[in-house]
Write a protein that binds this DNA or RNA. Structure first.
Length: 820
RNA sequence: GCCGGGAUGGCGGAACUGGUAGACGCACGGGACUUAAAAUCCCGAGAACUUAGGUUCGUGCGGGUUCGACUCCCGCUCCCGGUACCA
C-alpha cells in the first residue's frame, strides 16, 4: 500500500532537488550543442502579491519551457521585475517609507511565491529595472538617441492625469481616460521629451507582415494604431496674407467641391482671428475645455464659428470661408481640413447647420444621387470640376495630386495616426532622464562616463510634485558642455521604457560593459515564444518592437544577430474571471493563489489553470473543478498501487496491444498539442484518458506489467511540463532512469499504432446506421459485404438499389441508395 | 461606424486537411464499500417519442454546395474585445 499523495511534502522535496541539480539554468557555454530556445513571460510589476493572472501566465510559460527542455533544447526562461512605477510611490506616501524599500520587500515576497509554484526560471538572470545597473543602459541609449535627434523636447498639447500627477503617452489613454486610474485626462500644453517612433512608422507597419507567429488580433490592433492613410497635401492660400493653410485629405478627387475650410480651435489661424473677436475667443476657450473624455463623442454637437478669413482655392482661385470647428483635432494631420459637404457626411451636416454651400463634384457611376438627403461619400465620376470632369475618382486622385505638385500647391502625402512617444513623466520613482538644462547650451545629454544618473532612493514622496525637485544634491549639476551651473532634468522615464528592452538584457544580464552583448543576442534572440496578457497589444508590444529596432540601429546588434523583431511567436492569454467578471479587489471576487497552493499544492493550481480553458480564452475560476484537478492527481498516484499485481498467468495479448495503442496514440496527441497552438487543455484531457485506460487495465504477469509500466512512465514524463513535482515523484517511485523533468520527451512507437482490426462506421445516405469490424487490409467490397450481412444495417438496404459506395479508409463506409 | 473574434448539453470545453457531434472535466442521478460519513470505485446521462428494439430532431437563424457540413459558400441575428469626430 502506497502512502497518500501529500503535495506539500512532494513539492518541497523536489524543489530542493532541482535547486541542487541546477536544472533550470540556460547554458551560455559555446560547447553546448543543443539548439537554443527562448521562452519569455511578461515580467511582473512587484505589487506585493501574485494574482491568478500571473499564475496563469507563468504556468503557460513554464509548460512550454519544460517541454522544450525535454525535447533537447537549451532553454532560456528568465524572470525579473518591472520595478519602477506609480504604485510604489502611492504606497510610500501611505506608509511614509521610501518606494525603494517597499519595492524590494515586495520583490522578495513575490520571488518566494514564484518559487513556491515550482516555475523553472533561471534565477541567476533575475533583473530589477529599478536597479542602476539596469537603467544606466536605458539612460545611455537615450543619450545616443539625443545625439541622433531621435529623442527631443518639444512643447505640445499632451494628456495630463491629475490624480497620477503626470503626463501620459497617447497609448496610455483609453477612451479619454488614464489607463491606470481611469480618470479622464485633460489637455495641457507642456514641454516634454519624445522619442521619434513616427520615424519608424513605416517599418513597424511593414514588419507586422513578418509576424506569422502573432495573433491576427494583435497585428490588427497595431495596424490600426499606426493608422496609415494615403492621400494628398493641399496648400490653400489665405486672402490678404502670405501664409498658406495646409491640409491633408484622403479624397483629393473631391477638391473642386470644397466650399469652406475648418481649423481646430488650437490652430494659429484661429488664435489670430480671435485676437479682435471676443466672441470667437470665447468659443475657442469653450473648445479647449472639452476633454477628449466626453463619453459619447458621437452625440456631441458639432459646432463652429467663422474666423472671418478666406482661403483661396488652389485650382479655381475662388474664395472660401475659413471656420473654426470643434471636431477638428489639432493633433492629427495639420489641424485643418478642407470641407466638401457634398461628399462627406460630417461636413454635410455642418454645412446644413450653418448655411454653407454644398457643391456636388462626384456623381455615382450609374444613376443619380439626391443631394438633399445626404452626402454622397462613395467614389464615382467627376462633375462640376472643370478640366477634371468625366474622370473616375481614382483617375482624378492621380490627376489632381499631380496638378497640385506641378503648381507647388501640394502633392502626395502619407499620414499616420501614430504620434511620437512621450516618455517623460513628472514622477519620482522612475529612471532619471539623463539630461542637464543649461541656460546657454539648452538640454545637454549627460556624458557616458557620468552614467548612471542615479535616482536618490531615500526621498519620501508626499503626493504633489516629485521630491526630486526638492533634492538639491540631485538637482544641481554643471553643464557638461560649458561647465556653468545648470539644472538636472527632474522628470523620469515612462516605465514602458524599461520593459521595452528587458528581453534583450536577459541574454547578458550582468554585462557591465554594454547594454547587451551581441554574441548573446545572436545566441538567444529573437524570443521564440512570448506569453502575456493581450492588454499590452498596443502598449508594451509596440514600444518593444520599436525599441528593438532602435537598439539594432544604434549598432548594438545587427539584423542577422538579433532580427528585426523581438518576438517571433506571441501567445496572448485570456483573463482569469470569477463569477463572469475580472477578478478585482473592489468586486471582492479575487482568488488568492496562496490559499489554493496551501490547500491542494502548486501542482493542482498549475493543472487547473492549464486544463480549464484554452490558453488564449478567458478562464472562469471554478472551485469545484480545482478539486477535480486534484482528484486526477490522486487517481494517478493510486495507479502506482496496481504495479505489483504479479500472478502466474499473463494478460491477454489483445488487451496489452490495446493499452500500448492508447499509450502511443496519447504521446502523439500530446506532442501535437505542444507543437500546434499550445492546446494544453486538450493535452491534459488526453493524459486523463490515458490514466483512465491504465486504471481499467489490471496488469498481470510479465508483458502486462511491462506495458502498464510503460504507460505510467509515459504519463509521468508527459505530465512533467504541467505538474513537475508530482511527475518527478511518480517517476521516482516507478524507478525511471532520470528524474521526470530531465527525462527525454517520450517517442511514439509507430508499430504500436498499427491495428489488426479496424472498426468502420456504416452510414446509409450519410446517416449512421451501425458499425462493422474488419481486418485492417479489407477493401471496399469486403466492407460492403460485411455491412450487408449485418442485420441492423441490412434492414435499411431492403428494397433499395445501391447507387454509390464511399469508403473512407479506417473511418467509415457510406452507402447511397435509391428505392427500387 | 470600422477592425478582430465568437455562438456546440445544466456548466467549462473537444472534434485532424468536410467523415461516428458532445472527448476530458465539473455539476447531477443511481449503485458498491462503510454502523454511518468522508474518501474511493462502478454505472448512467443532448432533447423528444417509445413496452422493448429503436426512431426522429439536434452545433445562434435562413438558404446553398456535397454521398456526407460544427467544419465550406451566400445572407442575417446576437455576444465579446479593440478603436473611433482620423479629415
Amino acid at each position: 500500500m502506497t502512502e497518500r499523495y501529500e503535495a506539500q511534502q512532494v513539492e518541497e522535496k523536489w524543489q530542493q532537488i532541482w535547486a541542487d541539480l541546477d536544472c533550470d539554468s540556460a547554458s551560455d557555454d559555446p560547447a553546448d550543442q543543443r539548439p537554443s530556445y527562448y521562452c519569455l513571460v511578461m515580467f511582473p510589476y512587484p505589487s506585493g502579491n501574485l494574482h491568478m493572472g500571473h499564475v496563469r501566465n507563468y504556468c503557460l510559460g513554464d509548460a512550454v519551457a519544460r517541454y522544450k527542455r525535454m525535447q533537447g533544447f537549451n532553454v532560456l526562461h528568465p524572470i525579473g521585475w518591472d520595478a519602477f512605477g506609480l504604485p510604489a510611490e502611492n504606497a510610500a506616501i501611505k506608509h511614509k517609507r521610501p518606494p525603494a524599500e517597499w519595492t524590494y520587500a515586495n520583490i522578495d515576497q513575490m520571488r518566494g511565491q514564484l518559487k513556491r509554484l515550482g516555475l523553472s526560471y533561471d534565477w541567476s538572470r533575475e533583473i530589477a529595472t529599478c536597479h542602476p545597473d539596469y537603467y544606466r543602459w536605458e539612460q545611455w541609449m537615450f543619450t545616443q538617441l539625443m545625439d541622433k535627434g531621435l529623442a527631443y523636447q518639444k512643447e505640445a498639447e499632451v494628456n495630463w492625469c491629475d490624480p497620477c500627477h503626470t503626463v501620459l503617452a497617447n497609448e496610455q489613454v483609453e477612451n479619454g481616460a488614464c489607463w491606470r486610474c481611469e480618470t479622464p485626462v485633460v489637455k495641457k500644453n507642456l514641454k516634454q521629451w519624445f522619442i521619434r517612433i513616427t520615424d519608424y512608422a513605416e517599418e513597424l507597419l511593414a514588419d507586422l507582415d513578418t509576424l506569422s507567429g502573432w495573433p491576427e488580433k494583435v497585428i490588427g490592433m497595431q495596424r490600426n494604431w499606426i493608422g496609415k492613410s494615403s492621400g494628398a497635401e493641399v496648400s490653400f492660400g489665405i486672402e490678404g496674407c502670405d501664409e498658406t493653410l495646409d491640409i491633408f485629405t484622403t479624397r483629393p478627387d473631391t477638391l473642386m467641391g470644397v466650399t469652406y475650410m475648418a481649423v481646430a480651435a488650437g490652430h494659429p489661424l484661429a488664435k489670430k482671428a480671435a485676437e479682435n473677436n471676443p466672441e470667437l475667443a470665447a468659443f475657442l476657450d469653450e473648445c479647449s475645455k472639452i476633454s477628449t473624455k466626453e463619453a459619447d463623442v458621437e452625440t456631441m454637437e458639432k459646432k463652429g464659428m467663422d474666423t472671418g478669413f478666406d482661403a483661396i482655392h488652389p485650382v479655381s482661385g475662388e474664395k472660401v470661408p475659413i471656420w473654426v470647428a470643434n471636431f477638428v483635432l489639432m493633433g492629427y494631420g495639420t489641424g485643418a481640413v478642407m470641407s466638401v459637404p457634398a461628399h462627406d457626411q460630417r461636413d454635410f451636416e455642418f454645412a446644413r447647420k450653418y448655411g454653407l454651400n454644398i457643391k456636388q463634384v462626384i456623381r455615382p457611376a450609374d444613376g443619380d444621387w439626391d443631394m438633399d438627403a445626404a452626402a454622397f461619400t462613395e467614389t464615382g465620376i467627376l462633375v462640376n470640376s472643370s478640366e477634371f470632369d468625366g474622370l473616375s475618382s481614382s483617375e482624378a486622385k492621380t490627376a489632381i495630386t499631380a496638378y497640385l505638385a506641378a503648381n507647388g500647391k501640394g502633392g502626395e502625402r502619407v499620414q499616420y495616426r501614430l504620434r511620437d512617444w512621450l516618455v517623460s513623466r513628472q514622477r519620482y520613482w522612475g529612471a532619471p532622464i539623463p539630461a542637464i538644462h543649461c541656460d546657454d547650451c539648452g538640454a545637454v545629454a549627460v556624458p557616458e562616463d557620468e552614467l548612471p544618473v542615479e535616482l536618490p532612493t531615500h526621498l519620501q514622496p508626499t503626493g504633489g510634485a516629485s521630491p526630486l525637485s526638492e533634492c538639491a544634491a540631485f538637482k544641481h549639476a554643471d553643464c557638461p558642455q560649458c561647465g556653468k551651473p545648470a539644472v538636472r532634468e527632474l522628470d523620469t522615464f515612462d516605465t514602458f521604457m524599461e520593459s521595452s528592452w528587458y528581453m534583450n538584457r536577459y541574454t547578458s544580464p550582468r554585462n557591465q560593459n554594454a547594454m547587451v552583448d551581441a554574441a548573446a543576442i545572436a545566441k538567444w534572440t529573437p524570443v521564440d515564444q512570448y506569453i502575456g496578457g493581450v492588454e499590452h497589444a498596443v502598449l508594451h508590444l509596440l514600444y518593444a518592437r520599436f525599441y528593438h529596432k532602435l537598439m539594432r540601429d544604434t549598432g548594438l546588434f545587427t539584423s542577422e544577430q538579433g532580427g528585426d523583431e523581438p518576438f517571433k511567436n506571441l501567445l496572448t492569454q485570456g483573463m482569469v474571471l470569477k463569477d463572469g467578471s475580472k477578478m478585482s479587489k473592489s468586486k471582492g471576487n479575487t482568488v488568492d493563489p496562496n490559499a489554493i497552493i496551501e490547500r491542494f499544492g502548486a501542482d493542482t493550481a498549475r493543472l487547473f489553470t492549464l486544463f480549464a480553458a484554452p490558453p488564449e480564452k478567458e478562464l472562469e475560476w471554478n472551485d469545484a473543478a480545482v478539486e477535480g484537478a486534484h482528484r486526477f492527481l490522486k487517481r494517478v498516484w493510486r495507479l502506482l498501487e496496481k504495479l505489483d499485481g504479479k500472478t502466474a498467468e499473463d494478460n491477454d495479448a489483445a488487451a496489452v496491444k490495446a493499452l500500448r495503442l492508447d499509450i502511443h496514440a496519447t504521446i502523439k496527441k500530446v506532442t501535437h498539442a505542444f507543437e500546434h497552438g499550445f492546446a494544453f487543455n486538450v493535452a491534459i484531457a488526453a493524459l486523463m484518458e490515458l490514466s483512465n485506460s491504465l486504471q481499467a487495465f489490471a496488469p498481470k504477469g510479465e508483458t502486462g506489467q511491462a506495458a502498464f509500466r510503460e504507460g505510467l512512465q509515459a504519463l509521468a514524463a508527459m505530465l512533467a511540463p504541467f505538474v513537475p513535482h508530482f511527475s518527478c515523484e511518480i517517476g521516482g517511485r516507478l524507478g525511471m532512469d532520470k528524474i521526470a523533468v530531465l527525462s527525454d520527451w517520450p517517442q511514439v512507437d509507430e508499430t504500436a499504432l498499427v491495428q489488426d482490426e479496424i472498426t468502420l462506421v456504416v452510414q446509409i445516405q450519410g446517416k449512421k446506421r451501425g458499425e462493422i469490424t474488419l481486418p485492417k487490409d479489407a477493401g471496399q467490397d469486403d466492407a460492403l459485404a460485411a455491412a450487408q450481412s449485418d442485420v441492423s444495417i441490412a434492414k435499411w438496404l431492403e428494397n433499395m438499389h445501391i447507387v454509390k459506395v464511399i469508403l473512407v479508409p479506417g473511418r467509415l463506409l457510406n452507402i447511397v441508395v435509391r428505392p427500387q
